[in-house]
Write a protein that binds this DNA or RNA. Sequence first.
DNA 1: GTGGCATCGTGCGTACACGAACGATATGGG
DNA 2: CCCATATCGTTCGTGTACGCACGATGCCAC
Lengths: 157, 157
Amino acid sequence: MRSNVAKKQQESKAASSPTSRPYRIEEQVGYLLRRAHQRASAIFQVSIGDPNITPTQYSSLVKLNEYTELSQNLLGRLVGMDKATMQGVVRRLKERGLVDSRPDPGDARRTLLSLTTDGQRLVNKLLINGPAVSRETLKALNAQEQRQLLDLLSRIA
Amino acid sequence: MRSNVAKKQQESKAASSPTSRPYRIEEQVGYLLRRAHQRASAIFQVSIGDPNITPTQYSSLVKLNEYTELSQNLLGRLVGMDKATMQGVVRRLKERGLVDSRPDPGDARRTLLSLTTDGQRLVNKLLINGPAVSRETLKALNAQEQRQLLDLLSRIA
DNA sequence: GTGGCATCGTGCGTACACGAACGATATGGG
DNA sequence: CCCATATCGTTCGTGTACGCACGATGCCAC
C-alpha cells in the first residue's frame, strides 16, 4: 500500500500533468492556514495591548463600535461567527462590563447589543495597536506580497 | 479625526506611498486567516471521507504514517501542536483504536506512538481524498495564484 | 386569522488551542 | 557523584468553534 501511493505519484509525474507533487501535509492549504492563524493569534495576544482580549472579542468590539447597536445574530454574521460561538463571546464581554444588551422593542426574539462606556474606551485604546498587529504578522513580506496575500485570502474565505 | 485619516490617504495616494487605508477589520490578516481557516475546516469535514476525523487528527495520522513511530512531543512539533493540545488529540485517536503507544525503552519520560492496523487502513483511505480537499479549498484561484498563496502562507507561518 | 415555516437566542456535547503548574526522568557541569 | 537545568507527559482552566435540538417569536400565504 505504501508503494501504491508512490506508484500513483510516479504515474502522474511521467504523464507530466500540472506538476502534481507528492502529497505533503505541510504543503496543504488547510495545514498552512492553521499554522498561520496560530502565529497571527499569538502576535495579537502579545501586541494588542490587553492580554485578556482575544481576536474574536476584538473584532466583535470593533464592529459594535462601528454600528452602535446590533442584534447578536447580525453581529455574528458580520464577524463570521456561529451563533453558538457568538453566545459565549458576548456572555464574556457582558461579564466584563464591556458590552450591554437590551431586548429589541420591535422584535421580541432579538437582543440588541451595544458597547458600554468602558467598552468604548477599551476599543479606542486597542484600535491604536491594531495596525501594528497586522504589520508584525506580515513583516516577512514586502508591500506587494502583503497586498497579494490579503487579496488571495479574501478570495478563498 | 475622520478627515485626518482621509487626508492621509489622499496624501499617500498622491505621494503614492504604501496606501494606508482606513482600518477595517475585514482587511486585517488575522481576521482573514480566521475566516479562511474556518472555510478550509468546513470543506475538510465534508470532503475527507470520514466525518469523525478532524484536520488535526488527520495531520497527526499522516505524520505517524510517514515516521512509523514518534514520541508525543515530537509529533506535536512536527504538526504544530502544543503538547497540551496533542494530549487530547492522541487520547481520542487511541480511544478509537487508530493509534497505539508504548513506553520508550531508551527514555522513560517518552511515550512512543504508532498507527494500529485500523489506523493505517484509515490513513490510506483518507489520503486518497486529501488532494481533493485542497483543490476544493483553492478552487477560486488559478494555478499560479494557488502556488503564490501557499508560498506566502508558509512564509508568515 | 391561522397554520406552516423561518429566525432568534439558548443549552449541550465535542473538539482544538494554549498558558501554567506539576511530578518524573534525563543530562551536563562541577 | 550530585545538583541545577531541561524535557516529557499530564492536568486544570479558559476560550474559540460548530452541530444539534429546543422553545419563543415573527411572518407570509392561503
